[in-house]
Amino acid sequence: MNGSMKRVGAIFVKDWKDLKRNSYVLFTVFMPVVFAAILGRMGVENPGMHMFPVNMALVMCAAFVQASMIAEEKEKNTLRGLMLSPASTLDIFIGKSVLTGAVTIVVIILSIWLSEVQLTGIAPLSIAILLSLIAYISIGTIIGLLSRNVMETGIVGMPVLVVFLGSSFIMQIVENEFIKKVLSYLPNEQLSSMAVQLHGGAAFGEVASHLAVIAVWAVASIALTVVMYKKSAADK
C-alpha cells in the first residue's frame, strides 16, 4: 500500500469508527430505508416513482451525510488538522467520500428491495446511479464546506433537499417552461426519466443522453468541490 492509499485508508477507518457512534448520521441514513419500506407497503405503480427511493437515498445519505461529516470536521476544527497533515486534497476528499459512498450504496440496495419496485435495465441504471452518487457526494461536500457547523447544513442544504427531491412536484405546479426545462436537467430528473424510458423498453443508446447529463453533473460538482476545498484550506 503506498503512502496515499494508506492515508485514504486511515481517513476511511477513522470515519467508520466515528460514524458508528454518530447518532445524527445514523438517523439520517435510516430515514430513506424507512421511507422505502412505507412505499413498498403502499405499492408503487407509476414508473416515474420507481427512482424516488433511490433519489431519496442519494440526497439523504450521499449529500446530507457527507455534508454533516464535513461540517462537523469544520465545527470541531479537525478538518484543519487533516489539512495540516501530509494528506493531500485528493487523499482527504477520497477518504471522506468512500465511506459515504459505501453506506449510500447499501441504503440504495435496501431501499430498492424494501420498496419492491421492479427496475428494468439494471446495467445503465447502475452506471447512472454511480455517476449520481459522485455528484451528490460532491454536492454534500460543498454544503459541508459552506456550513459553519452541523446545524447549519440543514439550512444551507435545504434548497438542495427541496429541489433535488421535490423537482417532480415543482414541475407539476409551475407553468414557466424555462424553469421546467432547467429542472428537467437535474440529476434526479434525469435518473427518473431514464428509468421510465428503460421501463418502456428503451435501449442503452436511447438513454445515453441522460447518462451524459448526469456525468456532466458529476464532473462539474467535483471541480467546484476542489475549488471550494482549496479556498477553505487557506484563510483569507
Binding site: R7, A10, K17, N77
Partner: peptide, 26 residues
C-alpha cells in the same frame, strides 16, 4: 502544530485519534 483550538475527534478514543495521525504521517 498545536493551537488552543486544535480539534480532536471526541467520539473516538485517545488511541484512535493518534492512530489516524500515525497513518497520515507514516
Amino acid at each position: 502544530i498545536l493551537t488552543d483550538n486544535s480539534g480532536l475527534y471526541d467520539r473516538l478514543t485517545v488511541y484512535d485519534n493518534l492512530v489516524l495521525f500515525c497513518d497520515l504521517y507514516g
